[in-house]
């Protein structure tokens, strides 16, 4: 019962303080709003990029052909090496006979043409998917090294460049967001510091009459929490409306059919939840720091 009263009192005092220090609170809330909007943008971009990259990665396979002179041993050697290669996710072997059968089903002309030939002109092949697309090139080169491999290629070009570009974008936004989070936590901490100073005499009396440490500190911690949570409201609205509008505007695709956007629901709800949590945590961290530093008990 007493714990609940202390809690309620803490919340009430924190709320009063947010209202009383309106301009200061507004500054802190604005800053955390801006930060959280950027966090939201970063999250939306990186989540979409991750999805798009995954889509692209599925397309990115190495196709290696074995020379006509290649023996069964050669094929087994390659299988063993592929098994050993770290970057190889899996591979599919298709013998020239299988190719031939498949070709035959494509068209009758093919089928008759192939019948007339004494030897099979097709080659045995491996289709290889990799784990990490960024070292696709290295893996391909490794496969090329076998002298019985006639050729090994992958869809070089745009896809690979996009993946690398996305990678850079993701890292830059991450650094930016982290910097902003720190600034916001600092600003909220500073707001709490000023509230602590403005309530110095109240705190002094509370200490004299025997308030427990927790009940002295709680209002300030709640105040930070409120500032963080209030700061997440606008970003959440921006996320929900913004993303739905964007998605509708582009019909779910960015520029080309390959770049498919993540569907808005439940994605934006998930982002909103995270924004709320991040806002709350930033506020708590900022105020906890200020309380530890300026509210000596």
């Amino acid at each position: 019962m007493k714990a609940i009263r202390i809690l309620i009192r803490g919340i009430r005092d924190a709320f009063k303080s947010v209202v009383r220090n309106f301009s200061l609170s507004t500054a802190a809330i604005t800053c955390s709003s801006i930060t959280l909007i950027l966090v939201a943008v970063a999250m939306i971009i990186s989540y979409n990029v991750k999805n798009i990259t995954q889509d692209l990665e599925k397309e990115l396979t190495i196709v290696a052909y074995i020379k006509n002179s290649g023996t069964n041993e050669n094929i087994n050697t390659l299988k063993a090496s592929l098994d050993a290669m770290e970057n190889v996710e899996n591979y599919k072997f298709k013998s020239k006979e299988e190719w031939k059968l498949e070709m035959k089903t494509y068209s009758d002309t093919f089928s008759t043409a192939l019948e007339y030939l004494e030897t099979n002109p097709l080659l045995d092949s491996f289709t290889i998917t990799v784990k990490d697309v960024t070292s696709l090139k290295e893996t391909t080169e490794e496969i090329r090294k076998f002298e019985f491999v006639s050729s090994a290629d992958y869809g070089e070009g745009i896809a690979e460049n996009l993946v690398t570009a996305f990678d850079v974008i993701e890292k830059v936004t991450l650094v930016l967001v982290l910097a902003l989070v720190l600034v916001t936590a600092f600003l909220i901490g500073n707001t709490i510091k000023l509230t602590i100073f403005s309530r110095k005499s109240e705190i002094e009396i509370m200490r004299l009459v025997g308030s427990s440490n927790i009940s002295i500190r709680l209002p300030f911690l709640f105040e930070g929490l409120f500032l963080g949570i209030l700061g997440s409201i606008v970003p959440i609205l921006v996320t929900i409306y913004g993303y739905v509008l964007l998605y509708d505007h582009f019909n779910g695709y960015l520029f080309t059919q390959i770049l498919r956007m993540t569907e808005p629901f439940n994605f934006i709800l998930y982002v909103s939840m995270l924004l709320l949590i991040i806002g709350a945590v930033i506020g708590m961290v900022g105020s906890y720091h200020a309380v530890r530093k300026y509210l000596k008990i």
Binding site: M1, K2, R5, I6, R9, I205, M206, V209, G210, S211, S212, S215
Partner: peptide, 9 residues
Amino acid sequence: FALEAIGLH
């Protein structure tokens, strides 16, 4: 205030 501060009802 002194009593509120120590959590009295």
